[in-house]
């Protein structure tokens, strides 16, 4: 499977996927740490996270997949939502909580 196929499968199999540097427990970058913290603050205790530092193919592949040059990247129900700045904006406006609640409800 190509990196694009793997990413497509990951984001379509799991309702909430975060591509990040490090893990939610041990993030390796401040932006990734913020992204994981925002998901937790939204009440999403467990989500599928991918440590891009473990695979350069996925690290570069996910940038091409979303046409987005930076990490972290959040996907909900297979849709690219944004990076950490956008997650923060959506969290502050309450939209992210709604989006996640709907995605995890069914």
């Amino acid at each position: 499977m190509s990196a694009q196929d793997i990413i497509r499968e990951q984001v379509s199999t799991h309702p909430v996927v975060l591509y990040m540097k490090g893990t939610p427990q041990f993030p390796q970058c401040g932006f990734s740490a913020n992204a994981a913290a925002i998901l937790k603050a939204c009440g999403v205790g467990e989500f599928f996270s991918v440590n891009v530092l473990e695979s350069n193919e996925i690290r570069e592949g996910v940038k091409a997949y979303a046409n987005w040059p930076t990490i972290p990247q959040l996907y909900v129900k297979g849709q690219f939502v944004g990076g950490s700045d956008i997650m923060r904006e959506l969290y502050q406006s309450g939209e992210l909580q709604k989006l996640l609640k709907t995605a995890l409800a069914n």
């Binding site: 046409n67 987005w68 040059p69 930076t70 690219f80 939502v81 944004g82 990076g83 700045d85 956008i86």
Partner: peptide, 10 residues
């Protein structure tokens, strides 16, 4: 939206 704005900047 924010995604489009960020993409334009990138």
């Amino acid at each position: 939206n924010a995604v489009a704005r960020h993409r334009a900047i990138y």
